[in-house]
Amino acid sequence: MRLIAILFLLLFVAAGIVFGALNADLVPFDLGFARLSLPRGGAMLAAVLVGWILGGITAWLGTSLSHRRRRRRERDGSKVGNATTA
């Protein structure tokens, strides 16, 4: 399973390199506060990477916050339970 995953990863890296080489011409970008020129393929791959990372961070933040909320609720509940049994 791990071998297949590594093979896929290598395949995608190779595809990325080929994609970058085929789209090497510079594309101007106007960000409002700055203007930059990046290779078309590189910009595309960077956009994918940034989207992926942002998605991961959003999911992690959402889950950890909900976990924290639940734990706090359970802790409060057990405190009430202890108080009533005492």
Partner: peptide, 13 residues
């Protein structure tokens, strides 16, 4: 592509 990458990253995470 970027929103799709976002969705993939979110789901996997």
């Amino acid at each position: 592509v970027p929103p799709l990458a976002f969705a993939c990253g979110w789901w996997l995470a």
